[in-house]
Design a protein around this nucleic acid. Structure first.
Lengths: 232, 232
DNA sequence: ACAGTGCATTAGCCTAGACTAAATTTCAAC
DNA sequence: GTTGAAATTTAGTCTAGGCTAATGCACTGT
């Protein structure tokens, strides 16, 4: 008996491949190469595992690998990465606004779901949400066509004292930190005035839109990405 | 020239433990053992793959394996299987009522998602739906505690001519057949009176609640599970 | 009772994707 | 320019879960 089973290798990507592409995307967002050890650290795997995967990914044309230097995404790899990022951020948005998830908990759930959802489901969710442009952490959501907004944001920790800012994006996914930030009212969209900063990487002191002040340690202030609100 | 066989088989998708447990559950729902070849056929894998997996599953205590006879679920395996079935059916219900999915399309989507969703997400979905008891195909949804309703249903093909029935469950997941059935108004909940049946496995003729009649071929009539509506 | 048939299992191989240990390359410091 | 440390790649191994081919078991028919 000669039953035909999988007639051709499915075009779908392995779970891990998708994670590797996302990592490379994030690590090269400022330009340059993603290094083996950075990818390894981000995915919590050993460096040789990364080397092996980079070999496979460059054979399939998703990345460009310069030995001993690092990797970059090809246009095809970038498209695949942006698709995953769109999935992730639409899922986070949907879980938050339609199923009552806390913004600290959505990341882990989306991280698993993004590998299993169909394009159709993502588009239905996006539609139900009214095609959101930002996820609950303020990160821009790539369009279905694969375009993503690139804003010039500055971490609060590196902002100028005296400047007026709007908190645009929280660059972190750890539940505990996100809970704390939400308690402090430090969520995307809030207006900030930078009052002062202590020396030697000390905390930044800000006044919020409601007139109250917050003292934000450097570790957290590095995660709060702001845009200037001058002239608004 | 002889056809040259490809030297290596194409990469096939790997079925998870969860899929095996679901198969065993369904194949043993009438009691008895699930056989290796039935499981293999249901999951579209080769019989030796099933033997191998059954070995692993019985080592972890999820199934009882009687060599050359078949397998049954242990209580622990049954719990795991019912959890997967709950996930699947809640997902199907949610996709249908909250995201506008057609009842023919939900199965494939749920099949992938059920391995990725958390318990928490399923319970949120169930809550948003008002704790539904049946999925869009009329199949009972196990409770979070792992209990499932077992109804005595008879396929329309085996119903008595003259009887009054309610279509309770459509035992199929093929989009094309489901679309056709929906067109014919043969969806769970509809009342049927069995008018006649042609001999030699011929079609069953039914009158619907609205007075119209349908001629249902045996293949489909075997998939329409009904309960008696006498005295309603 | 036993031969044949058909299903189940074992044996042996393959790939993906992990790992560790060893070898290689790069680069910075002298 | 050489040297040594750090990063990267290669080599070799492991596991899960597929596969095919070969073998083993059980049941049916004579």
């Amino acid at each position: 008996m000669n039953t035909i089973r999988s007639p051709q290798p499915p075009p779908s990507l392995t779970r891990s491949v998708e994670d590797y592409l996302k990592s490379v995307f994030h690590l090269t967002s400022q330009g340059g190469f993603a290094t083996t050890s950075d990818i390894a650290e981000m995915l919590d795997v050993a460096p040789p595992s990364v080397s092996g995967m980079m070999k496979r990914l460059s054979e399939t044309g998703l990345i460009e690998h310069v030995p001993y230097r690092g990797v970059q995404l090809t246009p095809q790899g970038r498209r695949a990465a942006l698709q995953m990022i769109r999935r992730h951020r639409i899922l986070e948005s949907y879980l938050t606004s339609k199923l009552g998830y806390d913004w600290g908990d959505v990341h882990v759930e989306a991280e698993r779901l993004e590998h299993a959802v169909s394009e159709k489901l993502i588009e239905r969710m996006a539609d139900a949400l009214g095609e959101p442009r930002y996820d609950p952490h303020g990160a821009p959501i790539p369009t279905a066509a694969g375009e993503i907004e690139e804003a010039e944001l500055v971490p609060l920790a590196e902002s100028e004292v005296g400047s007026s800012l709007v908190l645009q994006e929280v660059g972190d996914e750890h539940p505990a930190r996100l809970h704390y930030l939400a308690e402090q009212g430090l969520t995307p969209g809030v207006r900030l005035t930078v009052i002062d900063r202590q020396p030697f990487n000390g905390p930044t002191i800000v006044r919020l839109g409601d007139g109250t002040t917050r003292v934000v340690g450097q570790e957290l202030a590095l995660l709060l990405f702001c845009r200037s609100s001058d002239g608004e």
